[in-house]
Computed example of a mutant assay.
Amino acid sequence: MSDLKDTIKSAMKDAMRAKDKPRLTTIRSIQAEIKRIEVDERIELDDARVLAVLDKMLKQRRDSISQFEAADRHDLADIEKAEVTVVQEFLPQALTEDEITDMVVQAIADTGADGMKDMGKVMGVLKAPMQGRANMGDVSKLIKAKLA
């Protein structure tokens, strides 16, 4: 079992002991998504794949927050924000703006990208090291700005 899955499992036990229902619900949804993928694909997820699952869940929550706020449903947006906080606990330390910019500049130099046609190459290089540490939508915008 991966270290990250062990961490999530122990966090669930802690939330159960503390009777923290909102946190427990979020952690259970994380475990359910991991289990769903393992059953569907008949594999044991490693830490990198678990990070990808967490990153996807974070993106879904952020999209929901923006939609709820646009619909003036702040009660639901607050629930989603609480879930974002719990999911982020299991992700590695987020990169700073400067670190992201440096990594993008380095990736552009390494791939020899000179236009928008090379954006896929740059994203391919950056996806693994930035997984769970940066919002890839923001990274994509930065790459477009640098390649334009």
Results as ranks from 00 to 15, higher is better:
S10F: 11
E89R: 08
A113C: 13
L58N: 15
L126M: 09
R28F: 10
S29D: 08
D63P: 01
G115E: 11
S2E: 00
S140A: 06
R133I: 03
A134K: 03
G137Q: 15
I8H: 08
K146Q: 02
Q88E: 12
L58E: 06
M103A: 12
E41A: 09
G115P: 07
Q106P: 11
V53D: 00
I34C: 12
P129F: 10
I27L: 02
V104R: 06
K81C: 04
T85I: 02
A94H: 14
D47G: 09
Q60I: 07
R73K: 13
M119A: 09
K127D: 00
E80S: 15
L45K: 05
T111I: 08
M16S: 12
K35S: 05
K141Y: 01
I43N: 01
D14G: 03
G137F: 01
D118K: 15
K13T: 00
V87G: 04
K9I: 03
A82K: 15
R49T: 09
L24A: 15
A15K: 11
V105E: 06
A48F: 15
M103Y: 08
E69D: 04
K121R: 10
R23F: 00
D63A: 02
K141H: 11
K121E: 04
E33K: 08
M123K: 14
P129Y: 01
K141W: 02
R73C: 05
E41K: 14
G124Y: 11
I108L: 01
K21G: 08
D6P: 00
L76R: 06
K9L: 09
M130P: 07
M123F: 14
K144Y: 07
D78V: 00
I43M: 13
K56Q: 03
P129L: 08
T26V: 12
E69W: 15
G132N: 04
R36V: 00
R62S: 13
V105Q: 05
K117I: 03
M12K: 11
V87T: 12
R17S: 08
A11M: 05
A71V: 02
M123R: 07
S140D: 08
A32D: 06
I65F: 06
Q88D: 02
I65P: 04
A70Q: 06
L58H: 03
D75R: 07
R36Y: 03
A107N: 03
K59C: 08
K5Q: 08
I79R: 13
I37Y: 12
D138F: 12
K127F: 07
T85R: 09
I43Q: 14
L95M: 12
V139N: 12
D47A: 15
F68S: 01
A48Y: 14
T25W: 00
Q88C: 02
P22K: 11
Q67H: 04
G112Y: 05
V87Y: 01
L4V: 06
I27Y: 04
A82V: 09
T96K: 07
T111P: 03
V104D: 14
K21D: 09
I43Y: 14
K146A: 06
G132E: 01
T111Y: 09
G120I: 03
E89Q: 08
I108A: 01
A77V: 09
L95E: 04
D114A: 02
V104H: 02
